[in-house]
Nucleic acid binder design. Structure first.
Length: 425
RNA sequence: GGAGAUAUCGCAUAGUGGCCUAGUGCGCCCGCCUGCUAAGCGGGUUGAGGUUCAAACCUCUCGAGGGUUCAAAUCCCUCUAUCUCCGCCA
C-alpha cells in the first residue's frame, strides 16, 4: 500500500511508475476519484455526528416538552448518522481495495520491461568445462540417487508430484546448510528466528501474497489459515500493529522455515528432481528499517547473499530484475543465479527485494524515529540466504566428479567431510 | 474438546447508560524551586483520520466485529486472545 497522499501530491510520478511496470496508469485516476469520494463522505459523516453529539448533551439536560421536541430531532439525526456512517465505510472500503491492488511504484533505477529484460550486474566464478575435464556431467537427481541423498519416487508415492525425501547425506547436507546459514547470519548481526509456517489471512494479505500471487498459495479451508511460501510472511507480520523505537533499528532477523508453493502457473516446467517443488526449507533474511535507510540495507542484503554463495564456492551471476517482473510489494529486486551445469544456464537461488513502506503500511508497522515526534511507516526488506533444495542442486552439480562423487566447499567440510561418495552398489 | 474467569492510555487501576471532553497513581517529557542529590510545585504524555495558508477545530479509537438506544467503556450477541481447572497429547 502506498502513501495515499501521493495521489494528491504526485499523481504523475505514480502514473509513470505504473508504466515502468508495463501496467495501465488508469488506476491512478480511479484512485483519485475514490479518494475524493472517501474524503467527502468522511466530512459528511463527521458533520452529522458532531451535531448528534452536541444535541445529545442538550437532551440530557432538558425535561418535559422541551425534551420531547429535542428527542424528535435527535431521532432523525440518529438515522442520518447511520446512513452517513455506512456511506463513509462503503467509500472507504472501495478506496482501500483499490489502493491495495496498486503495486509499489517501481524504482526509476529498475530496468524497464518484463521478465527477459533484466540486467546482469556481475558474474562471479567460472563454470566448469566438463568437456575439457573429459566427462558428461550428471544432473542433480542422478547424483542424488547415486549418493543416496534424494528419493523422488517415494516422495511422489507418499505426497505426489514435486515432493521428495532427502535421505542420508542429503538430509545431513540440508541440516549442515541450515546450521551454517543460521550461525553465519547470527555472526552478521541477525537475530535467529523459527517462525510459524501457518498464518492468518491478514498476514498473507499484508505481505502482498493474496493478490495476483494468490493461486500459488496453499490455504486450509477448515481453519482459514495459509501455509507460507516464505518466512518473509511471518517475519513481516511479526511487528504488525506495533510502533518500533527508532533507536532499535535496523532490526535484522534470519528465519528458518518450511516454504509451501502450489506452483500453479508452472506445470511442466522444471519437472525433474528437486529444483521446483511444492515444499522446501529456507533460511530467509528480513530487515526493518526507516525509509531513508532502505536502499542501503538492500545493498547490504545483496552483499550478504553474495558472501554466502562465495562461501559455497558456487559460480553465479547477479541480475537486476526488470520493473515488469517485480512482485506487488517490491520497488526493486536483485536475484542471484547459480550456474547449473546440466541446464547450461544460471538459475535463481536467492532474491532480495526492497519493499520500502509498502508492506509496513498494510501491516501497520510504524517507527518513532525521535521521542516526541510523529510516527512514520517502517521500511521492510527481505532476502534469501539459503533455499535448501536449489542450493543442494547447485552444490551437487557443480561439485561432481567423473565417478559420481561430489566435492564439497570448505565451509561444509566440518559438517560432512570433503567429499560425498556414491553408495556401494 | 469441556467448565469458569478476564480484556480500559507505556504499567497499575477507577469507571453499572448522559456530569467520560475516560479520572487517579507510577513511569516518561518540559519548566519552576532548592547553592549538589533527593523531595516539592506547575504543565504535558494513546494512536489514527478529516477540514485548514495557519492557528485551531472536528471525528474515530476502552481486545475485534455486530446490535439495542436520541445517547454505549457501561446493556445484548458473535468472535479472538490470555488465565485457572478437566480431558487428550509431542
Amino acid at each position: 500500500m502506498i502513501d495515499p497522499k501521493l495521489l494528491r501530491d504526485a499523481p504523475n510520478d505514480l502514473r509513470a511508475a505504473q508504466e515502468r511496470r508495463g501496467e495501465s496508469p488508469a488506476i491512478i485516476d480511479d484512485l483519485i476519484r475514490a479518494d475524493e469520494a472517501r474524503r467527502s463522505t468522511i466530512a459528511q459523516f463527521e458533520a452529522v455526528r458532531s451535531e448528534q453529539k452536541s444535541m445529545g448533551k442538550l437532551v440530557a439536560k432538558a425535561s418535559g416538552e422541551e425534551k420531547a421536541a429535542l428527542l424528535a430531532r435527535t431521532k432523525e439525526l440518529g438515522t442520518a448518522v447511520k446512513e452517513a456512517e455506512a456511506a463513509q465505510r462503503a467509500a472507504g472500503d472501495e478506496f482501500t481495495v483499490l489502493l491495495k491492488s496498486l503495486p509499489n511504484p517501481a524504482s526509476p533505477e529498475a530496468p524497464p520491461g518484463g521478465e527477459d529484460d533484466f540486467i546482469v550486474l556481475e558474474e562471479v566464478g567460472t563454470p566448469r568445462d566438463f568437456e575439457a575435464e573429459g566427462f558428461t556431467p550428471r544432473d542433480h537427481l542422478e547424483l542424488g540417487e547415486l549418493l543416496g541423498a534424494i528419493d523422488m519416487e517415494r516422495g511422489a508415492k507418499v505426497s505426489g508430484a514435486r515432493f521428495y525425501y532427502l535421505t542420508g547425506v542429503g538430509a545431513q547436507l540440508e541440516l549442515a546448510l541450515t546450521q551454517l546459514a543460521m550461525s553465519t547470519a547470527a555472526k552478521w548481526g541477525f537475530t535467529p528466528m523459527i517462525p510459524p509456517a501457518l498464518v492468518k489471512p491478514q498476514a498473507m494479505e499484508g505481505t502482498g501474497f493474496l493478490g495476483q500471487a494468490a493461486d500459488d498459495v496453499y490455504h486450509l479451508d477448515k481453519d482459514d489459515l495459509y501455509l507460507v511460501g516464505t518466512s518473509e510472511v511471518p517475519l513481516a507480520a511479526y511487528h504488525g500493529d506495533e510502533i518500533l523505537d527508532g533507536a532499535t533499528l535496523p532490526k535484522r532477523y534470519a528465519a528458518f522455515s518450511p516454504c509451501f508453493r502450489r506452483e500453479a502457473g508452472s506445470h511442466g516446467r522444471d519437472t525433474r528432481g528437486i529444483f521446483r517443488v511444492h515444499w522446501f526449507d529456507k533460511v530467509e533474511m528480513f530487515i526493518y528499517t526507516t525509509l531513508d535507510q532502505a536502499e542501503a540495507e538492500h545493498r547490504r542484503l545483496l552483499a550478504w547473499e553474495q558472501e554466502w554463495l562465495n562461501m559455497l564456492e558456487l559460480p553465479y551471476r547477479v541480475i537486476d530484475v526488470a520493473a515488469g517482473d517485480l512482485g506487488l510489494s517490491a520497488i526493486r529486486k536483485f536475484d542471484c543465479e547459480a550456474w547449473i551445469p546440466t541446464q547450461g544456464k544460471y538459475r535463481e537461488v536467492s532474491s532480495t527485494s526492497n519493499c520500502t513502506t509498502f508492506q509496513a503500511r498494510r501491516l501497520d508497522t510504524r517507527v518513532r524515529v525521535t521521542q516526541g515526534e510523529d510516527t512514520e511507516p517502517a521500511a521492510t526488506l527481505n532476502g534469501t540466504l539459503c533455499a535448501m533444495t536449489r542450493t543442494i542442486v547447485a552444490l551437487l552439480e557443480n561439485g561432481q566428479q567423473a565417478d559420481g562423487s561430489v566435492k564439497l566447499p570448505a565451509a561444509l567440510h566440518p559438517f560432512l567431510g570433503e567429499v560425498l561418495r556414491p553408495l556401494e552398489s
